[in-house]
Design a protein around this nucleic acid. Structure first.
Lengths: 337, 337
DNA sequence: CTGAAAGCGCTAACAT
DNA sequence: ATGTTAGCGCTTTCAG
């Protein structure tokens, strides 16, 4: 049976209220009593009991991060950014994995609401069907990261996905690709649809027709990447350039292409979204759209904590820049390593 | 202002007690009242308030996972195993990232205790300095995974690290390596020290001397892997075989080796702990000690939930098997792809 | 089968 | 500066 605040109060010969004041670092307690309380806390090994505290004060110093796929290194980097920033400011971070699944996501948002976290950083599984009502009802602020929500105007941190998709596609065209394909993410996510829109825009700008057969829709996960890549290879006129909308699907594509003995970049020039540590170790090294994942997490945490503090009345959208890092997998001219 | 149980009670014309009974799925409520309550819950959009509930009932259906490094894919797979298993059984999972840092780990264990989670799955940052006292005081069960604790006899799920280290080293020796080096993890972790011990055992068994210069101690992270690899390459007599104790350090080593133009496996045969999706896509593909990460998470969750239910009086240790997957990075004979 | 009442551990309002 | 009191939302005896 752990010690309660009353036990501490009894041992220090003060009232529970005084103990509470000391514990919450308030200045209006005499040094004598403060020391006595602290000693008692120490003796008893007292630890404040979270649920009671948040029941009474309706606040915690825990922020939640609900990510759409924790096995995706992009999101783990992003989470690290949130963690470091929040912790610097005295908040702790708990993480939940929605696994690109609306039902799981809903459940975790409910838990976040029920557990009364101070705020939530969310990368929504769907721009239209994800609902943050549970949180809104309780006045818990939400910042979306990576993706946005169309159903509510929330603070958000994203990269310019449209432009990134356009530039990556343009790069493939410049390398002489005539049939550039894309493995796109779910169009219900803003990243999925914007990167695809960027791809289309680049083709239009170059005066190329958009061949629907070259657009493979997948799920941002390894399994989907497999199927999509295989489908593209089965085409009578297979692509000679390929843009893949995230890192997990890129891993899958690399496996399929390697099994099928496709020569990269000669047969197929490749660009993948999300840079990673192993991209450089591949042969050829992978051309990637590098996103500032860690920094996105930092920014999201900053926005969220401002919101928690009640600063900033209006929704704020931070757009960072994704950078095309050109490496061997897309270089046909060969004038660069 | 969200609806409380009293509001629901009022609207359904019943007592709060009845609402509580319905919400907790108890059978002793008449169908009439149950329906009225459910309707009222629906109308009001009522959601039970976690802190009040756990304050009163001293229990939650949330389990915590405190991992030592969330950016490590091994741990994210493991977490997925915990999640799936726990969710099947009606528990939710929240995750905290200790980042191989004892202070952060301590903090998260305190939060887990304060928030009154049902139990904790932990991969401890240190086998001797990690303390689970905060949780033990409150009677919250803990299962360690991947690593063990020397300070308490807890349920644990591990692989046979000693044997895996031995077999991997033996494999390198069989490939004709004469100077096999290791990049070991922190010896304060059981995985770090056991894999190293396995390496030593293999050398002894083969009648080779253990050259201390060939043992590089690092931190299980990318940065440490860089330094360790560079240090090994600077040796007057550099290694011709290398075992790396986890995936993050392997990524770092691959980068360094690729920059230094070391030929794998001719100059240096390579084996890394932890298999991954991109291992096959590398050229040459990476020989890896594959750990059943997901399954480890599943087992850990099973043990933990048993413990939560109060089953099983004695600590239980599950040891799974790590499998050496031989690929091109370590094959010198060349009779395999 | 249902309701009334007590109280979990803590903090905030009010007194002093 | 400190103590007293009330009550957060919920579950759980205990009566009926």
């Amino acid at each position: 049976m752990p010690a309660s605040i009353r036990d501490v109060a009894a041992r220090a010969n003060v009232s529970p209220a005084t103990v509470s004041r000391v514990l919450n670092g308030r200045e209006d307690v005499s040094t004598v009593l403060r020391d006595r309380v602290l000693a008692a806390v120490d003796d008893l090994g007292y630890r404040p009991y979270g649920p009671a505290r948040s029941l009474r004060s309706r606040a915690t110093t825990v922020v939640g991060v609900v990510v759409s796929d924790l096995t995706n290194p992009f999101f783990t980097s992003m989470v690290r950014g949130v963690e470091d920033t929040a912790q610097q400011r005295g908040y702790s971070v708990i993480i939940a994995n929605a696994d690109e699944d609306l039902a799981k996501e809903k459940r975790y948002l409910e838990i976040a609401a029920a557990e009364q976290v101070a705020g939530v950083v969310l990368s929504p599984a769907s721009s239209t069907r994800t609902s943050i009502d549970v949180l809104a009802e309780r006045g818990i602020p939400v910042v979306t990261v990576d993706r946005r929500l169309r159903t509510a105007d929330l603070d958000s941190v994203t990269v310019n996905n449209h432009r990134a998709g356009r530039e990556a596609t343009q790069h493939l065209l410049e390398q002489g690709c005539r049939r550039v394909a894309i493995i796109a993410g779910p169009t219900q996510t803003t990243t999925g649809s914007l990167r695809l829109a960027g791809y289309r825009a680049a083709l239009h700008a170059a005066g190329c027709a958009v061949d629907p057969a070259l657009i493979a829709l997948a799920d941002f996960r390894i399994e989907g990447g497999y199927e999509a890549t295989k489908a593209l290879l089965r085409l009578r006129r297979p692509p000679d350039g390929l843009l893949i909308s995230n890192n997990l699907m890129t891993i899958a594509a690399l496996e399929v292409l390697s099994t099928a003995d496709i020569n990269i970049p000669a047969d197929l020039a490749l660009v993948g979204f999300d840079d990673s540590r192993w991209a450089k170790a591949l042969r050829p090294p992978l051309t990637a759209v590098a996103q500032p994942a860690y920094q996105m997490g930092e920014e999201a945490a900053l926005l969220l904590l401002d919101r928690v503090r009640g600063a900033r009345p209006n929704p704020c959208h931070v757009t960072l820049t994704a950078q095309l890092v050109i490496r061997g997998s897309s270089l046909r001219a060969g004038h660069l390593a």
